[in-house]
Amino acid sequence: MASRLFTRRRDGRIEVRLSPDGRAFVGATAREVAAAEGDPNHAWGAALHAPIDPGRDADDPLAMLSRQSELTSNAELVLATLDEGALTDGEAWAWFCTLQVALRSIAVANGLLDDDAWNALSGPLVEHIQTIQALLFELSRVL
């Protein structure tokens, strides 16, 4: 049986069994989310700043601020816990959210908006996306 990348321990913490390369991948992803959140011209902006209520000219500034703050906090928490052997539930949730935000941002930035576009994609971007999907799938088993 293949070993799991994340396992829930008896004490409730989530053990991380990622290789150094795997941790570096997660770290680079979190750094990209943090950078994108602070850069209005970043390619991931369309996904990160998606409308909350498309029927309004502008969204509630407090809601937008809350989203920005939570996205950044999660990415920073990932970076702060990158080398930990085990994560709390909240830390693992921050990893999960940050990876999923990156996944969707990459999809939107590359026009992967339907199954046809995704199925037609080839090359290193597919591998990159599948790595994030695999990490998310593993995390979803313990959250």
Partner: peptide, 16 residues
């Protein structure tokens, strides 16, 4: 709107 923000922070495409 609060739920929508939580879903967006979790990386899902959500609107109200």
């Amino acid at each position: 709107e609060s739920y929508c923000v939580k879903l967006q922070v979790a990386g899902l495409q959500s609107t109200v």
